[in-house]
Design a protein around this nucleic acid. Structure first.
Length: 454
RNA sequence: GGCGCCAUCGUCUAACGGUUAGGACAGCGGCUUUUCAAGCCGUCAAUCGGAGUUCGAUUCUCCGUGGCGCUGCCA
């Protein structure tokens, strides 16, 4: 052990009862960063014990999402359903040793007890007397861990992110661990799975803090080594409530149409951790990452910041990567910079279709500041003349000639020229667009504009 | 109600116990200008409240308040 610490093994363990959402993705990211940083191993374990709610569709979404984000895991996907036989023996052992027992109270009785406790303002817990009775040995009821209600023991664990956290053991009650020896509940099977995989650090959301003392008790009852815990802050909606579908708790895959995976990773990473700069790669994040420095408080999911980060990434995209990411093979190499400089969301790239196909627009858009149609038309005809006589070499000469056509207010020339090429109220400079389209296409579009004004 | 976690600009955050409390996003204003974008410059904006420790507290302690989580035969 000395000088040779155990190898770091971490996992992300989503249940396929919903899509891969932002919170799970961030949790996966921090597990992944920690594993890379410590030269450890990162696993993906699908917790599909809830047969009613788990689906293959959700499982695939989780796999697709993590793959898209580039959070690669070691080996095959692990499924709890593949080793259901692992749970029976330890459960029977606990039962045999009297550390667990069968509780035969009905759900109505438990509910009444809980309500009574709330009204009496005492801690809610089920102190089950069946554990001392022969009844506790008889199957049929739910299996609970026997917890000493008279104990004054404090369960303490040293959270890597938050420091020491303690709970009074007596307040836990005899909590449930399985429906039967062949049907374990979360708090039980998660421990068996983590122990079998020799997980060294359990890095998960802070909503699991209050599960931790229960799990520690199970580790102890089973004589298993207790791993280290690190509880991550939650990602919040703009109103600081829990992130809901309305605010973005949909599938991470929904982001693919608008955002680069690097942007999302960058954004998620920065939401719970302070890196040295705003924009950095997965590798740079890994180099800087220190689990103990993850923040403690929840952070609001600010889509504006994500948009800005994405814009930074998009600006650096090569033409080929832009075509690929936006799914628009028609964007030419020359057109690409015009697009990337203005793009916040990938799906908006189609707004620049005038760079590769003829635009459609109304004639009245061509006029600069309510100018008469014939003035606009004359301006366009002169622009056409200039372009026909230009060699497509020296841009400066062209701009000079256009300026002199305009005389004082250059908008009288540049606005209709620009609209003739783009059909848009807003677009890049017409000369830039012209360089993308080429002479023939430009003349063609100017002629169309002129005909619209006739 | 019980238990737990958390608390700096609107948002994400920085600040060996000593700073004019810094940066980024958003907002606003400007430069440039033929529209947009980008870029650059500027600007607005915060230590939840109260005690205590200390020469000195955003920082340490306690109390309060607030937000959130858990309180399932869900995970």
């Amino acid at each position: 052990m000395a000088g040779n610490p155990a190898k770091v093994k971490v996992r992300v363990a989503p249940s396929p009862t919903g899509f891969l959402h932002i919170g799970t993705a961030q949790s996966a990211l921090y597990n992944w960063l920690f594993a890379k940083k410590m030269a450890g191993t990162f696993y993906l374990r699908i917790e599909d014990t809830d047969k009613e709610r788990s689906t293959k569709e959700f499982e695939q979404d989780i796999i697709d999402g993590l793959t898209w984000l580039g959070l690669d895991w070691e080996g095959d996907v692990i499924r709890t359903s593949d080793h259901l036989q692992n749970y029976r023996a330890p459960l029977e052992k606990l039962l045999r040793e009297g550390k667990a027992f069968y509780c035969h109270h009905s759900q109505e009785e438990l509910e009444a007890e809980r309500q009574r406790q709330e009204s009496e303002k005492v801690p809610p817990r089920h102190e089950c007397r069946h554990k001392e009775l022969p009844l506790g040995k008889e199957g049929g009821g739910i299996i609970r861990l026997a917890v000493d209600a008279a104990s004054d023991r404090k369960i303490v664990f040293n959270d890597v992110i938050r420091g020491p956290i303690e709970f009074k053991a007596a307040l836990l009650g005899d909590f449930s661990i399985a429906r039967s020896v062949s049907d374990p509940l979360y708090n039980f099977y998660v421990i068996i799975d983590d122990a079998e995989m020799e997980i060294s650090h359990i890095i998960r959301g802070e909503d699991h803090i209050s599960n931790t003392p229960k799990q520690i008790l199970i580790y102890e009852a089973l004589g298993l080594p207790v791993p280290l815990f690190a509880h991550l802050p939650l990602i919040l909606a703009p109103d600081r409530s829990k992130l809901s579908k309305r605010h973005g708790a949909m599938s991470v895959m929904e982001y693919k149409k608008d955002y680069l995976s690097g942007s999302l990773i960058n954004f998620l990473g920065g939401l719970g951790y302070t890196f040295s700069k705003d924009i950095l790669s997965r590798e740079e994040m890994t180099a800087e990452f220190d689990l103990a420095k993850v923040h403690k408080s929840g952070a609001v999911f600010d889509i504006k910041k994500l948009n800005w980060i994405n814009a930074q990434y998009v600006k650096r995209l090569s033409p080929a990567d832009l075509r690929q990411a936006a799914g628009l093979p028609d964007i030419s190499d020359a057109a690409a910079p015009l697009v990337t400089e203005r793009l916040e969301k990938l799906s908006d790239a189609r707004e620049f279709s005038y760079l590769w196909s003829e635009p459609e627009y109304e004639a009245d858009m061509l006029g600069w500041k309510n100018e008469d149609a014939h003035i606009t038309r004359t301006a366009l005809e002169r622009v056409k003349g200039v372009i026909e006589n230009w060699d497509f070499q020296d841009e400066k000469i062209l701009r000079g000639r256009l300026d002199s056509v305009a005389g004082g207010d250059r908008g009288g020339v540049y606005w209709p020229f620009r609209v003739a090429l783009s059909g848009k109220k807003f677009s890049p400079d017409p000369v830039q667009i012209m360089l993308v389209l080429g002479k023939d296409e430009v003349i063609k579009r100017i002629n169309i504009a002129i005909s619209k004004l006739s």
